[in-house]
Amino acid sequence: MIRPFGLDEALFIVFAIQWTLALSAIAFAGGAVGGLIIALLRVSQARLPRYLALGYVRLFQGTPLLMQLFLVYFGLNIFGAGINPWLAASLALTLHASAFLGEIWRGCIQAVPSGQSEASWALGLGYVDRMKSVVLPQAAKIAVAPTVGFLVQLIKGTSLASIIGFVELTRAGQIINNATFVPFKVFGLVAILYFVICWPLSLLARWMERRFAVATQR
């Protein structure tokens, strides 16, 4: 039975934004923690942690996000966690974001001149104080723009979670489309909603990049 595409249907899709945002927020928060760890391992003096982190990054950069979602989704099932789209999507996207943020932030940490670490060592600062007070604050300034840029990618990436049955924006569109059969209208609306979230973030990222470029010219 075909339903018309009315206000209720449209609102169903609009309200699904919250799940897209929730999933993005979880993945970003988890990815921030994981990414910081990966970045620190990648710039470590010791070889083993550096290579382990590099292997992790290469693995996640070299495989499609969809495969990562599948592997976590079915993997959790095999290891007895059952079929749980929320858990699977959160975990897979967190692992994914950790790899990418880790690599972005590694670059930012390495962009801080080595003289800053040398001065810290010469003053007797230990690892934690050197990172916390000297290196990371300077790396963070450089990191803001590319991090926001990645966040946009991540938000769009959450649409893949629809495939494992996670009801977010894209999945809500599919559900409505299956009932109304007006795919152009439905997915047009879905696309517009993604755009409304991502466009301002892109602008923000570009603005911050420009501001940083000006700040470093001085």
Partner: peptide, 24 residues
């Protein structure tokens, strides 16, 4: 003391001078 100064650019002069005594 280094050729390139290596002051911490995100801290004031005073903070540059107090960081290590406080932390270390």
């Amino acid at each position: 003391v280094f050729q390139q100064f290596n002051l911490f650019p995100h801290m004031t002069v005073l903070q540059n001078c107090t960081l290590a005594p406080m932390k270390v």
